[in-house]
Simulated scan of single mutants.
Amino acid sequence: MWTALVADAMMPAMKWTLIGSLALALALGLGAGGADAQSWPDRPVHIVVPLTAGSATDMMARIVARQLSQQLGQPFIVENKPGAGGTIGTAAVARSRPDGYTLLVQSASYTVTPTTYPNTPYDTQRDLMGVTPLGLLPQALVVAPSRGIDSVQGLVAAAKAKPGTLNYGSAGIGTANQLNAERFRIGAGIDAVHVPFKGTPEVLTEVMAGRLDYFFCPVNVCVPMIREKRLLGLGMGSSRRSAALPDLPTTLELGVPNSDYNFWVGLFMPSGTPRDILGRLYAETAKAIESPDLRQEMAKLGAEPNLIPPEAYNRQLKQEIVDNAALVKAAGIPIGGAQ
């Protein structure tokens, strides 16, 4: 379901031109009183990132904020409000005035939170709305060369030969690493032990030392290590290959069904924000993403542009919440444990 949804949403987005974006902005503004969009923004805009400074989500927010500031002539100020699996900062935006001056940049964990944090002081689908994803941050399935496993098929065979003896690492319970690994584990029909850590650097240390069997690693982190042969890439965990590792097939291509997990970073605003402001923000964000300078900055993060118009994006979010609820249940991920 998820692969079909992503492909369905991405095909029109790939054809979406700047003219189309501006047309959407005009269409969204019909009947909404275009004066708001014409004057917006006339003061600084605040972008809340509910994760720590220096994270991939935070860095994505900052490069987009810089470009929007240049285009619109007003500061777009990024503020980090981490804590409680991202729910503290997200709640702050959900409670803010819906006037286009408080935005949220959040990762794909946005669609996991309704299941793992069921008692948040906001309703993901009622209180917030998606503007567009900004980019995909794919993950690669990696092992240490010393493990003697050189293919996805070899990893699956090793796991099936001794059920429950292989282990995989993640940057924490409920993180993208674990979700990707669980989709892979379930799709491959194997049994493996999850070992959570506080962050990616700690996991990589254990993988390269051979104490962890495998890891779904953010591509921007693992590409240098793969090139230096400190890690061996077995497959991409996303639904399509990465431009950073174009010769590395996806785990789907390698025969593991439903093993893809698309980790994205997206832009949100409070529900009730005037539709003409939503339309203008989407159009300006589309223009920003098309900027060669911004694309170069995204490439350094291993990110790939992934613009989707608001209506299609919100349909995707709704389905992804359902899909992730099923995944959390199937994987036995603790409620209240996402990081």
Score class of each variant (00 low, 15 high):
residue 4 A to W: 09
residue 254 L to S: 04
residue 273 T to I: 13
residue 322 V to R: 05
residue 325 A to C: 00
residue 33 G to K: 11
residue 101 Y to M: 04
residue 11 M to T: 08
residue 66 R to Y: 04
residue 28 L to F: 12
residue 49 V to H: 01
residue 301 L to F: 15
residue 95 R to P: 00
residue 319 Q to R: 09
residue 168 Y to K: 07
residue 290 E to I: 00
residue 122 Y to T: 05
residue 53 A to Q: 12
residue 300 K to V: 13
residue 159 A to H: 01
residue 232 L to Q: 15
residue 31 G to R: 11
residue 285 T to K: 06
residue 89 G to Y: 00
residue 148 G to I: 07
residue 149 I to R: 10
residue 84 A to Q: 09
residue 66 R to H: 08
residue 339 Q to G: 04
residue 248 L to T: 05
residue 273 T to P: 09
residue 124 T to H: 08
residue 298 M to F: 15
residue 67 Q to Y: 02
residue 182 E to T: 11
residue 306 N to S: 10
residue 294 L to V: 12
residue 262 N to T: 10
residue 169 G to V: 08
residue 167 N to G: 13
residue 289 I to D: 02
residue 10 M to H: 07
residue 233 G to S: 11
residue 215 F to W: 10
residue 41 P to F: 01
residue 111 T to A: 09
residue 98 P to S: 10
residue 216 F to L: 13
residue 52 T to W: 05
residue 182 E to C: 11
residue 185 R to K: 15
residue 51 L to P: 00
residue 261 Y to T: 07
residue 5 L to H: 09
residue 127 D to K: 03
residue 140 A to N: 05
residue 186 I to K: 03
residue 201 P to R: 12
residue 148 G to R: 06
residue 305 P to F: 15
residue 213 D to A: 12
residue 32 A to W: 03
residue 229 K to H: 15
residue 316 Q to P: 01
residue 163 P to C: 13
residue 213 D to H: 01
residue 59 M to I: 03
residue 179 L to N: 07
residue 57 T to L: 04
residue 109 S to G: 08
residue 208 M to Q: 14
residue 151 S to N: 02
residue 308 I to Y: 06
residue 185 R to Y: 07
residue 1 M to I: 13
residue 52 T to S: 13
residue 204 L to W: 04
residue 138 P to F: 01
residue 149 I to F: 15
residue 170 S to L: 09
residue 96 S to C: 07
residue 252 L to W: 05
residue 67 Q to E: 13
residue 225 M to D: 14
residue 57 T to S: 08
residue 328 V to H: 09
residue 331 A to E: 05
residue 38 Q to R: 14
residue 262 N to V: 13
residue 14 M to F: 10
residue 110 Y to M: 12
residue 182 E to G: 11
residue 328 V to G: 06
residue 48 V to L: 12
residue 162 K to C: 02
residue 168 Y to N: 05
residue 71 Q to G: 01
residue 337 G to I: 00
residue 88 I to L: 15
residue 35 A to R: 11
residue 123 D to Q: 05
residue 256 V to L: 01
residue 140 A to S: 13
residue 324 N to K: 11
residue 246 P to D: 05
residue 185 R to C: 02
residue 101 Y to V: 05
residue 131 V to H: 02
residue 141 L to E: 13
residue 336 G to R: 03
residue 256 V to F: 00
residue 15 K to A: 15
residue 248 L to P: 08
residue 89 G to C: 05
residue 203 V to E: 04
residue 44 P to L: 04
residue 188 A to S: 08
residue 47 I to H: 05
residue 44 P to N: 05
residue 5 L to C: 11
residue 151 S to M: 10
residue 263 F to I: 02
residue 120 T to W: 01
residue 259 S to Q: 03
residue 200 T to K: 11
residue 48 V to F: 10
residue 148 G to Y: 14
residue 304 E to F: 11
residue 184 F to I: 06
residue 275 R to M: 15
residue 39 S to I: 08
residue 166 L to M: 09
residue 130 G to T: 03
residue 205 T to F: 06
residue 171 A to W: 06
residue 40 W to F: 12
residue 11 M to R: 08
residue 37 A to I: 01
residue 247 D to N: 10
residue 224 P to H: 07
residue 275 R to G: 14
residue 242 S to A: 14
residue 305 P to K: 11
residue 154 G to N: 06
residue 246 P to E: 03
residue 307 L to C: 03
residue 294 L to H: 12
residue 266 G to R: 01
residue 145 P to V: 09
residue 25 A to W: 06
residue 224 P to W: 12
residue 192 A to F: 00
